[in-house]
């Protein structure tokens, strides 16, 4: 009993419950990411992070000569967590939109890909048009530009919001959903893997600049201008020196910028 208690005390003490300090100043940057959005950011079985976002972030940190630490956070709480100072930047395929700019600042984009619709292989849905999807059930990850897109453009369909893409994938596979909407790269990656062989991508959707924004950027707390300028310079630098192309080609067979 005593040893359990002392273990518990050590555990609680080791959690360093309240800390202070915006760490960027001392050459240390804390980056928030989701870890559930392959191929952009995903957790390996051993708990390490992998993906396009992660490698780009790492390249940016090398370029800025700062040490980076990744912190995973659920998507629907990722902006509140940034505002609550749980990390200093979000690199998690977050689209730069006017809605979000009210709360956070963004770097320049580091990639831009359109949304798409995926359905079951034997589905009767043959195009991603409004009449084809009328009365159907569309799944999307909540709090994303894709869920906003579905709610605005497919107002005659029922939109269901899920915490992570994993859940809508399960529900598309078992037939609770007729279609799902997400980034074309995310959906293509999935349907081409063993896990997604139930389903296919019907087509991409035209980008709506108001909803989809200007592509994915790095979100920062408002007023962190020095950090933003450094990140913009670093994005330019890795675009110029070939590092970006190297990472791009590792994941995709086209330029996502």
């Amino acid at each position: 009993m005593k040893s359990t208690l002392s273990k518990l005390v050590t555990l609680v003490a080791s959690l360093s419950l309240i800390t202070t300090g915006s760490a960027f100043a001392d050459g240390h940057l804390r980056i928030g990411t989701e870890g559930a959005y392959p191929p952009f950011n995903n957790l390996n079985a051993d708990g390490s992070l992998t993906g396009f976002d992660i490698e780009i972030a790492q390249a940016l940190c090398d370029e800025m000569q700062v040490e980076c630490e990744f912190i995973t956070q659920d998507w629907d709480g990722i902006i509140p967590a940034l505002l609550a100072n749980k990390f200093d930047a979000i690199i998690a395929s977050m689209s730069i939109t006017e809605e979000r700019k009210k709360k956070v600042d963004f770097s320049e984009k580091y990639y831009n890909t359109p949304p798409a619709i995926a359905v079951a292989k034997n589905s009767s849905i043959t195009s991603a048009s409004v009449p084809d999807l009328a009365g159907k059930t569309i799944g999307a990850q909540g709090s994303t530009t894709h869920s906003n897109y579905a709610e605005e453009k497919f107002s005659q369909s029922e939109v269901r919001l899920y915490p992570t893409p994993d859940e809508y994938k399960l529900d598309l596979e078992n037939g609770r959903l007729d279609a799902v909407i997400d980034d074309v790269v995310v959906l293509s990656e999935w349907v081409n893997s063993d896990a997604g062989n139930c389903c296919k991508v019907v087509s991409t959707l035209p980008i709506d600049p108001v909803i989809n924004g200007e592509g994915a950027g790095i979100a920062l707390r408002k007023g962190e201008d020095e950090l933003r300028e450094k990140l913009n310079a670093a994005i330019k630098a890795i675009r110029a020196n070939g590092k970006y192309a190297e990472i791009n080609n590792k994941y995709f067979d086209f330029d996502v910028y």
């Binding site: 902006i79 509140p80 505002l83 709360k103 909540g142 709090s143």
Partner: peptide, 9 residues
């Protein structure tokens, strides 16, 4: 509530 919060924070 969660839907509204997720758009407006």
């Amino acid at each position: 509530t969660r839907r509204t919060f997720s758009r407006t924070f």
